[in-house]
Design a protein around this nucleic acid. Structure first.
Ligand code: FES
Ligand code: FES
Lengths: 137, 137
DNA sequence: CAGAGCAGGACTGAATTTGTCCTGCTTAAT
DNA sequence: ATTAAGCAGGACAAATTCAGTCCTGCTCTG
């Protein structure tokens, strides 16, 4: 259906939220969830993915929580998508060739590949920094 | 997961298939399905969607089948996507606002909107004609 | 050492996708 | 007129994916 996953939306919200809080500030999942209006458990999953990708970094124990792992100019929307949804596969043969019954006779595999690339480029062109700039106050 | 639906793949295959057969030629679903290697029943669904959108036109009765509804230069990938998957909704609030719990506090709705537009533009930029040109013989 | 909070696996329910089936309608050919 | 090929489309079933919950363990502060 060419729709972004909910987990990705959670992640993007979380990152912009952290960004507005400033780099140093450690924020707990509960605080974020309450503040934004998400399910705490599920947001936690998204944060874990972001952490593994280095986009967020975590502090454990009491007084723990999450911060951004790097500057907002160094985080693109593509990074978040990759962290949360994994490598994109616009078509099935992207994940494994056998999933396309007609692999050998396929005429548009090449096009779909470049299309995916172009979409990827769109996502890479937007950093969190520039995303925040776009907000009208 | 930002992946195109199988039905769309079926439809795209079908359109390029019809295109290579020439405008006048009426092709039956069975022929297409056998030839390409798809499930006849399911391909039939895709064809019905294409028909409703005017991309394909059908001939009923014995000796019936499908033809392209208009010239290959007048069919874009976006048309096929629209016919088969309906209007695209990259984010949920695109379909209805209530599906976003945080509609009022959302920072990236604007961006997602323009992103969707850009993707749409990519799809509109490719006609079936130009797609067929790209095939290396 | 108690408790706040992250890490992550397992699991469940919901939603969507994918595919099949069946019935009816249209028309060419006999 | 009858038959059969083929489209139209609704209903349904299976499979897959997504969304969300639960539970257990680990880490650190006070
Ligand atoms: S082989 Fe995958 S789209 Fe054709
Ligand atoms: S309101 Fe829909 S993405 Fe924010």
């Amino acid at each position: 259906m060419l729709q972004v996953s909910r987990k990705f939306e959670y992640g993007l919200h979380a990152v912009t939220y952290l960004a507005t809080k400033g780099q140093g500030r450690v924020v707990t999942v509960k605080e974020m969830a309450d503040d934004i209006g998400f399910s705490q458990e599920f947001l936690s999953k998204a944060m874990q993915s972001l952490k593994r990708a280095g986009i967020a970094s975590s502090v454990q124990g009491v007084k723990g929580g999450y911060t951004l792992g790097r500057a907002t100019t160094e985080i693109t929307v593509a990074d978040i998508a990759l962290a949360i949804e994994g490598k994109p596969h616009l078509v099935r043969c992207g994940v494994k060739a056998e999933s396309c019954e007609v692999f050998s006779s396929c005429h548009h595999r090449g096009y779909m590949g470049t299309l995916q690339h172009k979409i990827q480029d769109l996502l890479e062109d937007t950093t969190i920094y520039s995303l925040l700039q776009q907000i009208v106050p």
